[in-house]
């Protein structure tokens, strides 16, 4: 039974990840990603990681992939990608690399992988009647307290970074390069007409005082 579940979801995970890699439409790729992530969540459940299975579905399938889809739709890039390859030997090289890694994995497949000391940070199921959530939580707040605190910094960074990048500004007059010119590449700066770039009421940053952005921007920030 357990093996049967594994086989089914392993097939789904592989199908999903291959869709991500081979799909021509980004929306299909995102859906393939969901399939792979949910299958992995099933494997988590099979291996006594109930909390992580739930978090996996909520955070990944619920938030991350939705964000992906949102960006795909927002940018209107849900069309087929050209398969033109700018770097000549990259694709064969990547496939060769993959083959080597896979060969090594198969070489290792029949052997023991987990050779370490068991229960270095405490057993998975404690006797005192803790469930998986309590066990993980206890470890997070004791052994892993320091990385846990550092991840707080990560969330602040994500908020500041997201706001500062996604805020609208930069009127055409302010743009100081054509992008390609700076990297010495000839290419078309497709469709960068001013009308598209200047947002309605989009603020230009004040010349004298950089932090003094407009009201709208600061509202986005707060």
């Amino acid at each position: 039974m357990e093996f049967g579940i594994f086989v089914v979801f392993a097939a789904l995970a592989l199908a999903g990840s291959l869709t991500v890699v081979l799909g021509h439409n980004p929306v299909h790729c995102a859906l393939g990603l969901v399939l792979a992530l949910v299958s992995v969540a099933v494997f988590f459940l099979q291996q006594d990681a109930q909390l992580l299975a739930a978090v996996q579905v909520i955070v990944y399938a619920g938030a991350v992939v939705v964000l992906f889809l949102f960006v795909i739709m927002l940018l209107g890039v849900d069309r087929e990608e050209t398969l033109h390859e700018p770097i000549r030997y990259q694709r064969p090289a990547a496939l060769a690399l993959g083959a080597i890694v896979l060969a090594e994995v198969l070489f290792l497949a029949g052997r023991t992988w987990a050779t370490g000391t068991p229960s270095a940070r405490g057993p998975l199921e404690e006797d005192a009647g803790y469930n998986n959530i309590e066990t993980v939580a206890r470890t997070l707040f004791t052994d892993f307290l320091w990385p846990f605190e550092i991840t707080a910094a990560l969330l602040v960074i994500a908020v500041v970074g997201g706001v500062v990048l996604a805020r609208r500004s930069g009127q055409p007059a302010e743009l100081v390069d054509e992008g390609d010119a700076a990297t010495g590449e000839s290419g078309t700066n497709a469709g960068s007409s001013p009308s598209e770039r200047a947002p309605a009421g989009g603020p230009a940053l004040s010349r004298m005082a950089p932090p003094a952005a407009s009201e709208r921007d600061t509202e986005a920030a707060s």
Partner: peptide, 8 residues
């Protein structure tokens, strides 16, 4: 990516 006026 901070300088939004420059595509580079």
């Amino acid at each position: 990516a901070f300088d939004r006026r420059r595509l580079a």
